[in-house]
C-alpha cells in the first residue's frame, strides 16, 4: 500500500510541475493544486499507514487502546489542506484579475504586453 501511495504522490508532483511549466495561467493553478495534494499525500504516507482506530480514549478506559492511528500526520494534512484551499482560492481570484487586466492567458503574452 505504501508503494502505491508513494507512486501516486510522485505522480502528483510530476504532473503538478509539468502543468506549471506549461506557462498558462489556468494550467499553472491546476499545477499548484496538484502539487499541494501530492504533498498532502506524501505527509499522510510518510506518517505511516495503519488500519487502526482513532486515538481517543474511550469514556470508561484509563489509557488508549492499541492499535491506534498516529493523529499528528492527520492533523498536519488537515491543516495543510485548509491552508492550501485558502491559498488556491486566492490565486484563482488573482489569476482572474490578471486575465481581466491583460486579456491574456499565456504567461509570455502577459509579460511582453507590459
Amino acid at each position: 500500500m505504501e508503494l502505491i501511495l508513494a507512486i501516486a504522490a510522485g505522480a502528483l508532483y510530476g504532473t503538478g510541475f509539468y502543468m506549471m511549466l506549461r506557462r498558462r495561467l489556468g494550467q499553472l493553478i491546476v499545477g499548484l493544486g496538484l502539487l499541494s495534494n501530492g504533498t498532502n499525500l506524501l505527509i499522510f504516507t510518510a506518517g505511516g499507514l495503519t488500519r487502526a482506530r482513532a486515538p481517543i480514549i474511550a469514556g470508561d478506559a484509563q489509557e488508549l487502546a492499541r492499535p491506534y492511528a498516529d493523529p499528528v500526520p492527520q492533523a498536519l494534512v488537515l491543516t495543510a489542506i485548509v491552508i492550501g484551499f485558502g491559498v488556491l482560492a486566492f490565486s484563482l481570484v488573482l489569476a482572474h484579475r490578471v486575465h481581466i487586466a491583460t486579456g491574456a492567458d499565456d504567461i509570455e503574452e502577459i509579460e511582453s504586453g507590459q
Binding site: A89, F90, L92, V93, H96, R97, I100
Partner: peptide
C-alpha cells in the same frame, strides 16, 4: 468575501 468578490467582478 472571496466568493462575493469573484461574483461581483
Amino acid at each position: 468575501t472571496m466568493t462575493f468578490t469573484l461574483f461581483e467582478e
